[in-house]
Design a protein around this nucleic acid. Structure first.
Lengths: 228, 228
DNA sequence: GCTTGTGAATTTCTTCACAGCT
DNA sequence: AGCTGTGAAGAAATTCACAAGC
């Protein structure tokens, strides 16, 4: 069977997981591909195709049962195993400006397996301060701390001018993933993955989508539109 | 000629624009598709294909000049015209928690043509407060204000439980786009577009990408990886 | 009835390859 | 030499359609 998960599928699997999780919390037991699809704005065919990648329990078993649907718990388990939700990845946050501070007070990271292990800032007035349960360290400490603690992912919440230099430092000490809030494209070694979040560009895309929706034909059914 | 811009192309065009803008600020005059492509992690062929969608100046003219490249100013203009960068879209921000406040202090929105026209919060302690140059209004005012000011885009920076209800209110008074920071899928009328930003899911995807990169073959050249 | 799972067809997007311009 | 623009080929992702199970 196919072992490599297509990117679009991976994206959707995480959304399915979030949705099924919520349904479980609400007491749901079963869900059909049609139902799940409606909730997340995806065709039922697509949902089933995506679920093909789940590991089949070797003896006697697919996941869903025709006529019934999928068992929520089992489905959630299956997806989480597939998307590697068990592993924990610690984070190094660089920059405690607006975005940085928002991230620090965003509790969910911890719960979801992404603990913020260290935070840094270039501003001397920030260094040494405590924010929540973190103490802000100086950039001078960055390479040492990240290397010693083997932090795999860096979050860049710094001005554009500083971003590339800090990315270089992080990559040099073993970071393999970057979440970049600076509005620019980073250049990094081939083994590191970077995800950019540029709200300005996001808004531009959103308004393009709006324009496109109103420029061409009207849709008919009550559906959704998803992105990012 | 083709009039509809493919989604992936639209995404890249905005990135090109950002990059070219930066080059202009740095004094660059010309840029080749190869150069631009390298900077943003896209093949030169792809860049040229994307630029096909720019409006041709009717008489005597493509954009780039073979052997030379593209004129930065002209290129930027062309892209901006295409992606509708001239239009201004005002925003209604709902929720002044961590994320909401970060957005308010994120000056770029204004400059880029997305002024925050009103801000709301359910918390009584917040209502009436001034944050930057905005005064926080109660949710009770939301429908009136958004309708009267004809605000087209809403930003939901609220807890999950509140998101759907507020989305409904916003849609009911004419909002056509939503930027949703709540970790859930919204259900909206077919003519409204919603873009979701869920940092937890983003991190999950990032770690999957990292795992995939280290699980299969090593790459060779100094390139980048982009997302969102 | 409504459901899953999946080959096959289709659509969409990317890459290749090269003619032609500077 | 280096570059653009584009048809043609290729790869990837989505949708269709339907056999088979509950």
């Amino acid at each position: 069977m196919d072992r490599v998960i297509p990117k679009p599928t991976a994206k959707r699997l995480n959304i399915y997981a979030r949705e099924v999780q919520m349904m479980i919390e609400l007491g749901q037991q079963k869900v059909s591909s049609t139902d799940l699809g409606n909730r997340v704005g995806v065709k039922s065919n697509q949902v089933r195709k995506d679920l093909v990648y789940l590991e089949r329990d070797e003896l006697a078993g697919d996941h869903g049962r025709a006529g019934i649907g999928y068992d929520c718990e089992r489905l959630l388990n299956g997806i989480e195993k597939l998307v590697g939700a068990q592993k924990r990845w610690s984070l190094a946050l660089v920059g405690v400006g607006n975005i940085g501070r928002a991230l620090l007070s965003y509790a969910s990271f911890d719960e979801e397996g992404y603990p913020i292990a260290a935070v840094f800032d270039a501003n001397e007035k920030m260094v040494g301060k405590r924010i929540g349960r973190w103490e802000v360290q100086p950039i001078a400490q960055l390479t040492r701390t990240v290397k010693v603690r083997r932090i795999p992912i860096g979050i860049l919440a710094v001005p554009r001018e500083a971003a590339q230099g800090l990315a270089d430092q992080l990559c040099a000490v073993g970071v393999v993933g970057l979440l970049n809030f600076a509005p620019m494209q980073l250049t990094v070694p081939p083994h590191v993955v970077v995800t950019n979040i540029d709200l300005t560009i996001t808004l531009k895309q959103l308004s393009m989508d709006i324009a496109a929706r109103n420029g061409s034909g009207r849709s008919r059914s009550r559906r959704r539109k998803e992105r990012s």
